[in-house]
Amino acid sequence: MQRMGMVIGIKPEHIAEYKRLHAACWPEILAGLTAAHVHNYSIFLREPESLLFGYWEYHGTDFAADMQSISDQDVTRRWWALCSPCQVPLASRGAGEHWAGMELVFHLD
């Protein structure tokens, strides 16, 4: 299992919409994540800084293929079309990243 943390900004005027979307996340999105071996996925909001922190656990063996399977789904592209305008990617993110990956520095089971 691989633990993954990521961060992105959110436009303050879109916080309510982002919360509304995620309070009623589409079942097809959840099924796609599960099929891609993503578990224990959580998104946290930090205000007043307007940051989103995401955490998930990846239980698969081919991360690149599983993430591509999510990206390839039409329902995912429609979901992203709603969520992406709410987000503000960090200038310091890596090449090809939308959410900026984070280094795990401590974990307690």
Rank of each mutant, 00 (worst) to 15 (best):
60 G>E: 07
17 E>G: 07
58 Y>A: 10
83 C>H: 06
92 S>I: 04
66 D>F: 09
31 A>V: 05
8 I>D: 03
69 S>G: 02
16 A>V: 01
87 Q>Y: 10
16 A>F: 12
47 E>M: 07
57 E>R: 02
109 D>V: 08
49 E>N: 08
86 C>G: 07
92 S>T: 02
81 A>N: 14
9 G>T: 01
96 G>A: 12
88 V>F: 04
63 F>G: 04
3 R>S: 03
79 W>S: 00
26 W>D: 15
93 R>M: 06
103 E>G: 12
103 E>A: 13
32 G>P: 04
58 Y>D: 04
3 R>G: 02
67 M>F: 03
14 H>R: 03
100 A>Y: 03
104 L>C: 15
61 T>L: 05
62 D>M: 00
86 C>M: 06
82 L>R: 12
34 T>C: 10
89 P>N: 08
82 L>G: 09
50 S>R: 12
27 P>I: 06
87 Q>C: 02
73 Q>D: 00
8 I>N: 08
84 S>N: 12
65 A>E: 12
47 E>N: 07
80 W>S: 04
12 P>L: 00
86 C>H: 13
40 N>L: 02
8 I>F: 06
61 T>G: 14
83 C>N: 10
72 D>S: 09
20 R>T: 05
14 H>Y: 11
47 E>I: 01
95 A>P: 10
14 H>L: 05
39 H>C: 09
54 G>K: 04
57 E>W: 00
108 L>A: 13
1 M>R: 06
70 I>L: 04
8 I>T: 10
99 W>A: 06
20 R>I: 06
20 R>Y: 01
83 C>Y: 04
79 W>P: 08
105 V>A: 11
67 M>H: 10
101 G>I: 03
99 W>V: 05
69 S>A: 07
74 D>E: 11
87 Q>S: 03
74 D>I: 13
101 G>M: 08
90 L>Y: 11
39 H>Q: 14
78 R>G: 04
86 C>Q: 11
64 A>H: 11
73 Q>E: 05
62 D>W: 05
88 V>P: 00
21 L>Y: 14
82 L>P: 00
31 A>M: 06
21 L>K: 09
48 P>H: 11
5 G>H: 02
108 L>F: 15
30 L>Y: 02
